[in-house]
Design a protein around this nucleic acid. Sequence first.
DNA 1: TCTTGACTTAAACCTTGGTTTAAGTCGTAT
DNA 2: ATACGACTTAAACCAAGGTTTAAGTCAAGA
Lengths: 128, 128
Amino acid sequence: MNYYSIGEAATRLGIPESTIRFYEKQGLLPRMERDEAGRRIFTEDYLVFLKIILYLKNTQMPISQIRQYVDWMAEGDSTIALRLAMFQEHKQAVLAQIALMTESLQGIEKKIERYTNYLETNGKEVLS
Amino acid sequence: MNYYSIGEAATRLGIPESTIRFYEKQGLLPRMERDEAGRRIFTEDYLVFLKIILYLKNTQMPISQIRQYVDWMAEGDSTIALRLAMFQEHKQAVLAQIALMTESLQGIEKKIERYTNYLETNGKEVLS
DNA sequence: TCTTGACTTAAACCTTGGTTTAAGTCGTAT
DNA sequence: ATACGACTTAAACCAAGGTTTAAGTCAAGA
């Protein structure tokens, strides 16, 4: 199996090293392996796990809630129903967030149309 | 024309009064009218304008950039091309953000499937 | 007249999510 | 052997985006 340093992991994930250290301190990255010199070691599997964390972050899940998920993972399979419920609720929250952004974007697109029209007609169009 | 107090405006927009005051202090709400007692007065037109601000906020535009837009409005029609360019770039940023969330949501949905499967099969399915 | 509720302000406070700094430890190439 | 780059830590620092507090003004109803 291949191992990565924190620098390599950060590059592969597209995030700063400091963020990885911060997430570990926040309890999002438990059971992190170290080498004899105390340096963090990332396996492919660990990177896959970290990507899940980043999916949750990218969809605006708060760190406190991600930590809850990670804590449940550590408790074992008895918490799977809880994790499932959390993800299902989160999915709904994400869909709602996307819907809000899409709606708001429509209001912005109307502005783009107005401005475009104004410029195309050399200012002969009204700008309400 | 109908006039609204800050309390009524806040209720109609679904945000706290304190946020409206905060936005005004940040320069997002210029030329706010007041009554003789110094209380803010909101016309329908002003609420329409405020909704645009909320569209920008809902799509994660930073306050500093919203202020730039508001400042350009105050400068008049000579800044319309700048405003159009800003909104077009913002639209692309919003679409990128929606795309990222949609992608990340797919990773989360895979987890939902795995967990669902695990529970449906009473734990006979593997959880990688 | 007095109280109540809705408003006003400036300033202090708060949370979230990191980033930066300072001081130190390694392993490796010269 | 020494210098360099990559790592380590704890603690300080930061920005964004509000929220809360304290002290005061005012209009209207009892």
